[in-house]
Design a protein around this nucleic acid. Structure first.
Length: 496
RNA sequence: GGUCGGUUUGCCGAGUGGCUAGGCAACGGUCUGCAAAACCGUGUACACCGGUUCGAAUCCGGUACCGACCUCCA
């Protein structure tokens, strides 16, 4: 942990030295999905971005508590309907049945993309008591008012006392007054247009509702994150993450609620990831500019010419910085797929490579390699710059391939340098970047044995200049997805 | 309309006041029975117009275009 990690804090708009509140420990909260629908590829980008951050913090040796919630109530559509209820009606499922269905699918997708599970994954409906308690605290402190059974956060009073409403998202409360859309439900109950509901009275036909001191109703969407983050991470914690479209109003309101209830700023570092675009525009279901993860895997979409594997997609995402927009195009995916394959081929090569003999002499090549190795960490320390770290990694790929082909002699580097390449390279590929081998077969001894057998039969044929047999084996294997590669030291193979 | 961000070589995408990002594609070469892979070499880019500077694609100002947010959104 002697390295210094800098993170870009949305609250200050600057890169800041990362110093956790409790040395050695990091509390991190990321807004999870609302489970009313199949997970969107854009969501995946956000969760992959924070997966890298989680992984890298762990790599640095921090003990991280990663909390990511599941929103299963209170998230309303523009017309004021509960998203979960609306969808449940459509699919003719119990609300909790629907929530479970999409929660399961979400977990499956996260595992397909090889993201690590959060340490705690709390649900909004599991924290109704705590949410009511916070509503009461805010009321007691005078930053909320009740109106016909609903409770609204008083942004004007809050802003008068703390002068901070709108600070995170750079908004001014006076402007919010005029900008607000006028089609929101219960708008007229609010004192000020920028006020927001923290408890809502439910109508008779509303199914998901609970008894409270104010009405039979349900909590406001922003409340759950305030409650669950502080419950599991404390009144102040280190990192809060989410997509930058949540900055306003969600995160802004979260801060207001926490301060309104407890009087303290909850978050030290706000991290926001940027949007995934497709063909230059934000992915959006309404105008058809969207592709689901499964469509991307199978190629069953007008936007792509073929399917791409989940790890190729992950690689594609890591090739841009999490704070930049990323534009998904078919051409870009093809490039990413090939680059990913090259990287993983090198990983397989270096895994099986041993340094011959024992040489401790170092040359200027050792020095160059050691510079690359430290650059990998330095670049990740610079606000998790995965594209740069990945570029460094490709420089190692070049050295690995040169060693393999004999263009670089092992004697030109020391055994110590070689072991460092192997160790760091594999650590970054598997632990930090979170790539994984995509087919079970690669780890299967019998499968590998059979390939090796075919290769030796083919080599026999080649020795006899029986090109017909030789090419038959090569071509048939290629059809099955195995690419043979004839090299100086015999024939290797890889998955296509 | 308001706020913020972007415009980098054929594509994606980093970065920096003077030093090769990287991946993909292209072209030439090495290797190979052929192929693939790998390796070597080639490309000299930073929207436009001004300004600051010994020097700017990088800083400042303006213009154009694009995008996001402005209580559905990762």
């Amino acid at each position: 942990m002697e390295n210094k990690l800098y993170v870009y804090n949305s609250k200050t708009g600057k890169k800041e030295l990362f110093e956790p509140i409790n040395p050695g420990h990091v509390g991190m909260y990321v807004c999870g999905p609302t489970v009313y629908n199949e997970v969107h590829l854009g969501n995946v980008r956000t969760f992959v971005s924070f997966d890298i951050i989680y992984r890298y913090l762990k790599y640095l040796g921090y003990k991280v508590r990663y909390v990511r919630n599941i929103t299963d109530v209170g998230h309303l559509t523009e017309s004021g309907e509960d998203k979960v209820l609306k969808r449940a009606k459509l699919e003719q499922l119990e609300p909790m049945e629907l929530v479970q269905k999409y929660t399961n699918m979400f977990h499956e997708m996260m595992s397909i993309f090889n993201t690590l599970n959060p340490d705690i994954e709390p649900r909004a409906t599991g924290h109704l008591i705590e949410q009511m308690e916070m509503v009461q605290e805010i009321l007691d402190n005078g930053y909320a008012y009740e109106q016909n059974g609903s409770v609204y956060f008083d942004t004007l009073k809050f802003n008068k006392d703390y002068k901070s409403y709108g600070k995170l998202s750079g908004r001014k409360i006076d402007e919010l007054f005029t900008e607000t859309r006028d089609n929101l439900k219960n708008q007229d109950e609010k004192r000020h247009a920028s006020d927001f509901a923290i408890w809502m009275k439910a109508s008779d036909e509303h199914i998901m509702k609970w008894n409270s001191p104010w009405s039979v109703g349900f909590p406001g969407w922003h409340l759950e994150c305030s409650v669950m983050s502080t419950k599991y991470l404390g009144e102040t914690f280190d990192i809060h993450g989410g997509g930058n479209d949540l900055k306003f109003p969600h995160h802004e309101n979260e801060i207001a609620q926490n301060i309104g209830a407890r009087g303290v700023e909850p978050v030290k570092y706000w991290l926001h990831s940027n949007m995934l675009l497709m063909n230059g525009r934000k992915m959006s279901k309404s105008d058809g500019n969207t592709i689901s993860p499964y469509e991307l895997f199978t190629g069953n979409s007008e936007h792509v010419s073929k399917g791409y594997s989940p790890m190729a997609v992950r690689f594609f995402m890591l090739q841009s910085h999490y704070r930049s927009t990323l534009d998904l195009t078919d051409q870009a995916m093809q490039a990413a797929e090939k680059g990913y394959k090259k990287l993983m081929d090198a990983a397989q090569v270096v895994e099986n490579m041993q340094y011959p003999g024992n040489n401790n002499n170092t040359t200027d090549i050792d020095e160059k390699i050691l510079t690359i190795l430290s650059a990998m960490e330095n670049d990740m320390n610079d606000d998790f710059n995965t594209p740069k770290a990945l570029a460094d990694t490709f420089e190692l790929v070049n050295y690995i391939n040169k060693l393999k082909d004999g263009h670089l002699n092992f004697k030109e580097i020391s055994i110590d340098t070689f072991n460092k390449i192997k160790d760091t390279f594999l650590k970054f590929i598997y632990e930090v970047f979170g790539f994984r081998k995509e087919t079970a077969g690669e780890d299967n001894a019998m499968f590998e044995g059979m390939i090796e057998l075919l290769i030796s039969i083919r080599n026999e044929a080649r020795a006899n200049k029986d090109w017909a047999t030789s090419d038959l084996i090569r071509d048939k294997l290629k059809e099955l997805g195995i690419q043979l590669k004839d090299g100086k030291d015999g024939t290797g193979w890889s998955k296509i």
